[in-house]
Simulated assay, not measured.
Amino acid sequence: MFTGIVEELGEVTAVETLDDACRFRLRGPVVTQGAKHGDSIAVNGVCLTVVDHEGDEFTADVMAETLNRSSLGALEAGSRVNLERPMAVGERLGGHIVQGHVDGTGEILERKPSDNWEIVKISLPADLTRYVVEKGSITVDGISLTVVDAGPDYFTVSLIPTTLDLTTLGHKQPGDPVNLEVDVIAKYVERMLGDRAQGAAK
């Protein structure tokens, strides 16, 4: 479980393409502190398992299912990535509940800078629209953000200078893909209400 509070902006140092998967080597001095085989680290919002760890780098295998459902397949050596370790029990929940299970991908549509923040418009897949509401939470490339405006096929977020400086959203441009994870609570509520409606209809 994660919070969507990015700990550091890491870097992909190598990509090994396998038959139906990829193995990434990533550099992250903060998230590799105390890391060991089997630990989880979120990479651009995708929960990955540490295979090997040496110095400030770790490797992680990404299967075809994850490559197809996320933007990780577009990463190459030199790509910058958002990194976060799992939340520790008893710590403050700074963002919101994030599973590291990407629901789909969006695309940066527009950026509107101002003096103290920047508005970023992102496309929204049709099957995720019902989970995104104004002032609700959404995870973009592993970053816990608040929705400013929720349109029929897009949403906007407002980014403060810290987010622009310390995450991938500081340099992504229109046309670039981003990983999206909607609020898991909304999905559970939808399922429970659906089951209740089906039960009442019987």
Rank of each mutant, 00 (worst) to 15 (best):
D149K: 08
G199A: 13
V50F: 04
V189Y: 01
R69Q: 14
H37K: 14
P29L: 10
D61P: 10
G194A: 11
T168M: 01
S71D: 00
V98K: 10
V133A: 15
L93P: 05
K112M: 12
S144W: 10
T129M: 14
V133D: 07
V89W: 12
A35R: 11
M87F: 11
G78K: 07
T167N: 11
S40R: 04
T167V: 02
G94M: 12
H101N: 09
T146M: 10
I160F: 03
D103A: 04
H96T: 11
P152Q: 01
V133L: 00
L48V: 12
A126Y: 03
T168H: 02
S123V: 14
V15W: 07
T32K: 13
S40I: 06
E107C: 04
E190W: 04
L180K: 08
V46F: 04
A14E: 02
R69T: 15
G45H: 03
S137V: 06
I143F: 01
S114Q: 15
I108D: 00
E118W: 02
G194Q: 04
S137Y: 14
V132S: 06
D61Q: 03
D20G: 06
E76I: 11
E181P: 15
S114Y: 07
V30M: 14
A14L: 01
A21H: 09
V157P: 08
P174A: 13
K135D: 11
I160G: 12
P174K: 08
R80D: 08
D176V: 04
V147I: 12
R196A: 15
T59H: 03
T162D: 15
R69Y: 09
L67R: 13
G170I: 11
L145Y: 11
E65H: 00
T59Y: 10
V81L: 03
L166S: 14
L193Q: 04
R25S: 06
S144P: 02
M63Y: 10
G90Y: 12
A88V: 11
D141T: 09
S71N: 14
T3L: 07
G4D: 08
I119D: 11
H37I: 09
R85W: 01
A21W: 04
P161R: 09
I138E: 02
E91R: 03
P113I: 13
